[in-house]
């Protein structure tokens, strides 16, 4: 039997009295790109944080057949979660290489680590050039590359990307989206949150629209791209 890569049921997130996610159910099948789109404050980041254990939540999260209930964030990495957080969260005082090594913190096979490092460097040749540079001195786009590569270094079964294109120049945005597609073609399952809804929907197999903590629409990427509501609210057409 094939498990979904991720199965989220009735997920709720509270921050004190703020009810950020109000009971969300969705799943990601192995090999899919699934995206979540929604306005600012819709609860997208909160949802992703709940999945990787950075915030408390109620409901059920099942990763590759295994319930994550009660499992601390740092232990979820071992189970196959890779998370490139909102705002990139690069370790600024560490070099690019050290950041990537931190991604592989739990890995013990040095040959596998080296191969994965090469894989990341091939995806983003810029990072190979900058390996010894402090990450804090990188441009925003380069820092995003570090964040994605760092998440890849933990050999995730599911890669979570929170707004990878935020604040980047159009050319770099294009590059990031084509890398996401390449990762997927190489077999990576991806859960993507994006402000850039049109790009995200184009590369997604399925997508969900999140509005004030609830999923209000879902469908394949192309269905949502042609949906009138989506076109009006998120694509500005």
């Amino acid at each position: 039997m094939i498990h979904p890569a991720l199965e989220v049921t009735d997920l709720k997130v509270y921050y004190g009295f703020v009810h950020a996610v109000k009971g969300v159910t969705f799943s990601v099948a192995p090999g899919e790109i699934v995206s979540l789109i929604g306005a600012n404050g819709a609860g997208k980041t909160s949802l992703l944080r709940a999945v990787s254990g950075m915030v408390q939540s109620s409901g059920q999260i099942i990763l590759d057949g295994l319930s994550l209930d009660g499992i601390a964030a740092h232990k979820r990495v071992q189970l196959g979660l890779g998370h490139s957080p909102e705002g990139r969260g690069v370790f600024q005082t560490l070099t690019v290489l050290e950041n990537l090594q931190m991604g592989a913190f739990l890995q013990t096979n040095s040959k596998k680590i080296r191969d994965k490092l090469d894989y990341c460097y091939d995806l983003f040749p810029k990072l190979r050039e900058r390996a010894k540079q402090l990450s804090g001195t990188l441009s925003g786009g380069e820092q995003q590359m570090v964040a994605i590569s760092r998440a890849l270094m933990s050999f995730p079964k599911l890669l979570i990307l929170d707004e990878p294109s935020l604040g980047l120049a159009p050319k770099i945005v294009q590059q990031i989206f084509s890398i996401i597609q390449k990762l997927n073609a190489d077999g990576m399952t991806i859960l993507l949150v994006e402000q850039n809804a049109s790009q995200a929907l184009k590369i997604s197999h399925r997508a969900h629209v999140l509005e004030t903590g609830l999923i209000t629409l879902q469908g394949s990427g192309s269905e949502l791209l042609s949906n009138d509501l989506v076109r009006q609210s998120y694509l500005g057409l």
Partner: peptide, 9 residues
């Protein structure tokens, strides 16, 4: 906040 995402306790 980000360190746990590396598997760091």
């Amino acid at each position: 906040q980000v360190a746990p995402l590396m598997g760091i306790s």
